[in-house]
């Protein structure tokens, strides 16, 4: 045994990045445990997706059933519960995504199996399966080990590892739908697309972005002055949009927008991983933060450890002077 079953995630007909990222972790664990990687697709009409996932050289199991057309936690839980009994994988791996978090803990409770949520990496050594987690605002790592179990459950943080290049052709196998009885308690109603604002920050050349360090909206004018001086658009972290300082459509991060400007100036943003995932592709990153241990500095090109309210006005003045 020792198989690793990976649930590939897709939404609205498109495979999500986490599906490929898990291909960086699953093979080394399967090898350590003496098993195989098996990729599972639950959905409807997934030929293209199955082909794409098979390009990593592993067997792709496709359960094509209209009941999986839209994600439903209850149905996924039922299906995976049945598949755990049938396939007896040593490890079931999903993303720590809006899908994964919505059913994996319930599945673990139902099957009395261990769950390690939001691992950033996994290791198999000396017969033990261990996860690395990243906690306390990203400042501490934890090593968490599974006790021996028939099947271990793990969810992987999005963007924690780079997706590998496809390696070899794999096989696609259609399996019978593991979904047997209807579960009527939860009903999918609809998707509501993200609101569109006056500025599309994914197209901005320069972004001045603020976070919790802004403290209150009366501090915004200093930021606006800087943005105006360098013809930048203003965006924000989750903390800034939750507080209502910045409109929601200008939120940078996993639950907002992914941006790739040529210059990203992060002011008072600590750099939660969800935020970093949305902006680390910027060409040049400047970070100003009081906390020298702020995770934002790990992705910055230029760093200033200081009070943003002392630095920003001076920066604006100097930029105006230099640019004439």
């Amino acid at each position: 045994m020792g198989d690793v079953l990976v649930l590939a995630e897709h939404r609205q007909g498109v495979l999500r990045d986490i599906s490929f990222e898990m291909m960086a972790i699953a093979p080394k664990i399967a090898e350590g445990m003496g098993g195989e990687v098996k990729v599972l697709l639950l959905g409807s009409g997934m030929d293209e997706m199955a082909k794409k996932m098979s390009e990593y050289g592993f067997k792709v199991l496709v359960a094509d059933d209209p009941v999986f057309e839209d994600f439903n936690a209850e149905k996924y839980q039922k299906a995976l519960s049945a598949l755990i009994d049938e396939l007896k994988p040593a490890l079931l791996m999903t993303g720590q995504t809006a899908q994964g978090v919505d059913f994996m803990p319930a599945l673990a409770v139902e099957k009395k199996l261990p769950l390690i949520a939001e691992a950033v990496d996994l290791h198999y050594e000396d017969g033990a399966l261990k996860a690395t987690r990243n906690i306390y605002s990203g400042k501490v790592n934890a090593t968490v080990a599974f006790k021996p179990a028939d099947t271990c459950l793990v969810t992987i943080r999005e963007g924690a590892v780079e997706a590998p290049e496809p390696a070899a052709a794999g096989e696609v196998e259609k399996i019978e739908s593991p979904f047997k009885e209807d579960v009527p308690y939860r009903k999918f109603v609809e998707y509501i697309e993200a609101e569109v604002g006056d500025v599309d920050i994914t197209q901005s050349e320069i972004l001045v972005s603020v976070g919790r360090g802004l403290k209150e909206d009366k501090n915004l004018p200093a930021i606006e002055d800087l943005a105006k001086a360098i013809k930048a658009d203003i965006s924000g972290s989750r903390a800034a949009t939750d507080a209502g300082w910045i409109p929601h459509d200008r939120q940078v991060g996993t639950s907002g927008k992914t941006v790739k400007p040529k210059l990203y100036i992060a002011l008072g943003i600590s750099g939660a991983f969800q935020h970093l995932a949305g902006m680390k592709g910027a060409k040049t990153i400047v970070a100003v933060n009081k906390d020298p241990e702020a995770p934002i500095f790990a992705v910055a090109d230029y760093a200033i450890v200081d009070d943003m309210f002392k630095v920003v006005p001076a920066l604006t003045e100097k930029l105006k002077e230099l640019k004439g």
Binding site: E193, A194, E195, S255, G256, K257, T258
Partner: peptide, 8 residues
Amino acid sequence: EGGLMEVV
């Protein structure tokens, strides 16, 4: 993710 809402 990406600001999409799922209504259930």
